[in-house]
Simulated scan of single mutants.
Amino acid sequence: MAHDVPHWLAAFPDEIRMEPGVVHLLPELAGAPASAGRTQAVSELLARVAAALSEAGRLNGWRNELLDVVAEDGTVLGVIERAAVRPLGIATHAVHLNAWTDSGQLWIAQRSFTKTTDPGMWDTLVGGLVSAAETPESALLRESWEEAGLLPHHLKDGRRSGQFTVRRVLPEGYQVEHVTVVDTVLGPEVVPENQDGEVAALRTVSPEEVLEMVADGLFTLEAALSMKASLGAFAPVSLVVPPAEAPRVSL
């Protein structure tokens, strides 16, 4: 998590206990079996933590979007406002779609210049976080419509082409993002069209141009890794920084 965040968490001494590399939520529930009541209690605590960080001006906006908070064993502990995950170093799951034309070109999208993260940079045609209670498959369908106007039948022949994890320090905190990459081929009759206003431009490029743009730093990190995985340029990659930057979340 960000170096200054423990200061704000200190306001919850009876509900959050911090140890090197681990943040314990509601220690009195340690060992309790998973239940709807436990999940609700954790979610309510995380809502108050996010509100406190927002009131302190520590969050980069407020998205009104909930993400799952998942323990190392895959258990969903609760949910939290999306804007709070990176200040707290909470892991997220994202999906990216590489959409090819039948002539071997790749559709790419330029991020809106008003985006708070990587404005104006180039991205895969579709990319986004998996929201609370979503599966990667349902998230990909939702994002594909919002970002490119694609319908489920456009993705019916899609195949998973890679997975990787990004771990890096960012100005707002610490990013831990597990990414699933899917490839599909769009026929010449399909022309992607952004629906949510978060894309400045759409275009097709050749694989050679993709690699040149990656080398020039024109793509977001996640998009560059997603497209290189699709191109077979290298195996799934994990970008790692010292473990102390990424505390585990536990009950």
Rank of each mutant, 00 (worst) to 15 (best):
H3G: 06
D4E: 12
W8D: 08
A11H: 13
P13V: 03
E15G: 02
I16T: 06
P20Y: 03
G21P: 08
G31F: 05
G31N: 10
G37Y: 05
R38T: 11
A50H: 09
A50D: 05
A52D: 05
S54P: 00
A56M: 11
A56H: 07
I80M: 08
I80H: 02
G89K: 01
G89S: 05
I90C: 00
S103W: 02
G104K: 03
L106F: 04
W107C: 04
R111H: 07
F113V: 15
K115H: 12
K115R: 11
D118L: 11
G128C: 11
S131L: 14
A133I: 02
P136Q: 12
S138L: 09
A139N: 04
R142K: 12
A148K: 00
L155D: 09
R160A: 12
S161T: 13
S161P: 07
Q163P: 01
F164D: 05
F164K: 01
T165S: 10
V166N: 07
V169Q: 03
L170A: 14
P171E: 15
G187L: 14
P188S: 13
E189D: 13
V191S: 10
V191C: 07
N194I: 06
V205M: 12
V205S: 03
S206E: 05
E209Q: 14
G217S: 01
A223T: 09
A223K: 01
A223F: 02
G232P: 08
V237M: 07
L239I: 15
V241S: 08
A246L: 14
